[in-house]
Computed example of a mutant assay.
Amino acid sequence: MPIDATLPYDDTNIFARILRGEIPSTRVYEDAFALAFHDIAPQAPTHLLVIPKGRYVSWDDFAAKADDAEIAGFVRAVGHVAREAGLVEPGYRLLANIGGHGHQEVPHLHVHIFGGRQLGAMLPR
């Protein structure tokens, strides 16, 4: 069910629980600012999630509240994960669903990295 990206952060969301080690994940990268792991229901041959370690519901929340180091660290982590997955040359897609109209399902900012095949049109026409 899509969530309202303007709601306060919920510490019981699945990504917060993954960050705390309460739920297992197949991690591919971690630093002071971000954690990346495989999606449990992949929609492409490569489907990774990158989440900031801070308590941010949406991109707007992150842009308004994160400091410059967090923002730079998160963006660099997304690029690093895509490079390490071998996706730069063939290409890949980044997707961040925000709020109800964007069909955001977990109230923690996250970026999907899709790759490994031709992905087709961005949105159905």
Results as ranks from 00 to 15, higher is better:
A41G: 06
N13V: 13
D67A: 04
H47E: 03
I3V: 15
K53G: 10
T46H: 03
D39M: 01
A34E: 05
A77E: 09
R27C: 15
A72N: 07
H101C: 08
D61H: 10
F62A: 07
Q104F: 08
P2G: 06
P52R: 00
V111L: 06
F114R: 01
A82N: 02
V111N: 01
H47W: 03
V78N: 00
R117C: 14
R76D: 14
P52T: 03
T26E: 12
D67Q: 01
L35C: 09
V106W: 12
L7E: 14
H38F: 09
G86I: 11
T46S: 07
H103Y: 14
G100P: 10
I14C: 06
P45H: 00
A85H: 03
G102R: 01
A41K: 02
P2Y: 06
D61Q: 01
D31K: 02
S25P: 13
P24M: 01
I23D: 10
A77P: 15
H80E: 15
G100T: 15
P45R: 00
G54M: 01
G116T: 05
L49C: 06
F74E: 01
G100Q: 10
L7V: 15
H101F: 13
R117F: 11
V81L: 02
R83L: 06
G21W: 05
E22H: 12
H38A: 03
V81D: 03
G102V: 09
K65L: 14
N13S: 11
P24S: 08
D31A: 06
L19C: 07
G79K: 09
I98C: 06
A72F: 02
I113E: 02
S58G: 08
A63M: 08
I71G: 01
G120Q: 03
Q118C: 08
P124V: 04
L119A: 12
A69M: 00
A96S: 09
G54H: 00
A44H: 04
I14T: 14
N13E: 13
D4S: 08
F33E: 00
V81Q: 02
L35H: 10
W59T: 14
M122D: 13
E30Y: 04
G115Y: 04
T12E: 14
R125A: 15
V106Q: 06
A16R: 06
V106N: 07
V78M: 10
V106E: 09
R27V: 15
G21M: 07
H110K: 05
Y29V: 10
I23V: 15
T6Q: 09
H101M: 09
S58R: 00
F114V: 08
L109W: 05
Q118E: 15
A85T: 07
A66Y: 02
A66C: 04
R17F: 15
R27A: 14
D61R: 00
H108W: 09
H101S: 11
W59I: 15
H38K: 04
R76P: 10
L49D: 03
V50L: 00
F15R: 05
G116P: 08
M122A: 11
R83Q: 12
H80R: 14
G100W: 04
P42I: 02
L95K: 07
I51S: 01
I40N: 02
H38C: 06
R17P: 15
F74M: 04
F114S: 04
G99V: 03
V57A: 07
S58W: 03
I40W: 03
H101E: 13
K65A: 14
A5S: 15
A41F: 12
A96L: 07
